[in-house]
Design a protein around this nucleic acid. Sequence first.
DNA 1: ATCTCCATATTGGATATCCAATATTGGTTA
DNA 2: TAACCAATATTGGATATCCAATATGGAGAT
Lengths: 101, 101
Amino acid sequence: MEKHTSVCDMRGYLTFLILWIVRKKSLSGAEISEEIAKRKGCKPNPGTIYPALKDLVKKKALSINSKKGKEKCYSLTPLGKEVLDFATKSFCKIFYDVMAR
Amino acid sequence: MEKHTSVCDMRGYLTFLILWIVRKKSLSGAEISEEIAKRKGCKPNPGTIYPALKDLVKKKALSINSKKGKEKCYSLTPLGKEVLDFATKSFCKIFYDVMAR
DNA sequence: ATCTCCATATTGGATATCCAATATTGGTTA
DNA sequence: TAACCAATATTGGATATCCAATATGGAGAT
């Protein structure tokens, strides 16, 4: 099993995944982590997810639109939508035949 | 345009792509580069593709099965098939709803 | 108020990814 | 043969990706 991941470790595309996950509704960092865990099998480290979120906010692809207590909710900005759109097209062109059933 | 890629640069998954591309027929390094170029929009550098191929050979996921002159043809080994299978499943689980038209 | 829990955040470092530049090698052509 | 070209290969370095460990800060409980 780790024999496989050591050959082909499926790193990358974290920022793409984050943008994709929040595209419909805004979520907190913990909720985003949870959703990533569902997809990848394990939760990303705090040291992975929070810097990534911070960076996306800095680059104005995400905004923080509400904070109930300590929880911050992240949502796509107009720029974020644009970026996600572009990235999704690119993604589909690269991997167009991988998902084919 | 580079505004977009600077936010979400779609790095990664090169080894997965390579395995995916040679899954049906063995190809030379140049042909693999060509196919990647079709998908990603630009050809990977020699300094990117050849070390990646070498590494996959070292890890016994690819084998070199014929050389007509300088061209080496790479094809999946049984282990490579296994790895690709595992990686494809993982990929589909992570991105299951991205390609959904 | 103090304690505890949990989401958030930061730091440092290991590894991966990729490119630019350059070198090598084998086939082809003059 | 020498010159040339294209595929392959290597080196060095910039950046990205991610984790382990640790810190901060707010909310609720005791």
